[in-house]
Amino acid sequence: MLQTVLEPQTAEKAALFRETYLAAYRFMLLARLLDDKFAALWRSGRIHGGVFLGRGQEALSAATGISLKKGDVFAPLIRDAAGRLAFGETVLDAARTYLGSARGPMGGRDGNVHRGKPKEGYLPMISHLGAMISVVNGILLARRFKNHAGTVGAASIGDGATSTGAFHEALNQAAVEKLPLVLVVANNHYAYSTPISRQFACRDLADKAAGYGVEVDSMDGTDLNACLETVGQAVDRARAGRGPQMVVATLLRLCGHGEHDDAGYIDPELKKSPVGRDCQKVAEDYLIRQKWADPATLATWRTEAVHKIEEAIAQVQREPGPDPFTEEWRAISTQRLNEGHE
């Protein structure tokens, strides 16, 4: 009797998981190819400033973006191309920001990974690490004021940002206010060039959560399966009112800090270890093993993604850049109070 009740549910759940996994994988693929395209454009001098890739972190990022619903809040960091796409960013807006199109969400006033649409719950990061977490807290507190329940806010950070005062203050604040915050920590072993041995002295980054009274879970960040499960459960717990959640993914950054950085400092032993696995390859192997996709299907998806990216880049390259003569040089919204120095 019990079996007959449970089985259809389990089958339904399995189908849903398969669907989520496939969608997440395709965001990973799109993000990887988009990142590669930006790197190529940067090398050929078409991008001003830096390019920062998410190579090796796509599984965690995609899992984060896909675990959130419309109406949730997401404060991504620099290696979150996959999560941004999964949360609803278009390839066009990503390309517009990197290429400085006037039609992008930042209109050329800010670039590369500093993009977002705050009114849609998609926050544009500032460069100061840890600083976005308390902003997510503020949105969540405001929603509580407005009796707008059931939404979750996720913020991404790396091992380096866990050393900042902003991280400490914001996580403690979220715990005090019991906010539905999900703090996604990517321990990619290096903050720019600094190894984790020079970053923190606790046994595991997850240990930090206990100090704030925050629930924590850890995962293998190279495994999309684990990421979807762990991040998804943390999001569910936050949504259910269990207070802030922290998740820690262990992985390795498979690129430089930015494309200007050859990452010569990364320990070769680490690259050869399971931590150094490429999450995309891991996901592809899993898809084939599960018979959810065959190599021909994977190739088709790749071609489709490449087309999508090429189309977007071609369109953005025809779009105008910002014009300093028509630009409104005003940093405040209250026009009458603008000093307007030339």
């Binding site: 308390s134 902003v135 997510v136 503020g138 405001a142 407005k146 902003a166 203050e169 403690n172």
Partner: peptide, 26 residues
């Protein structure tokens, strides 16, 4: 509507910015 905060000036202002984005006037 008048809330004590932890001794966290960074997070106090960060929270206010988030609340303002969401339409509040902190």
């Amino acid at each position: 509507r008048v809330l004590d905060s932890p001794i966290s000036e960074d997070a106090i202002v960060g929270l206010a910015v988030g609340a303002a984005i969401e339409g509040m006037r902190p």
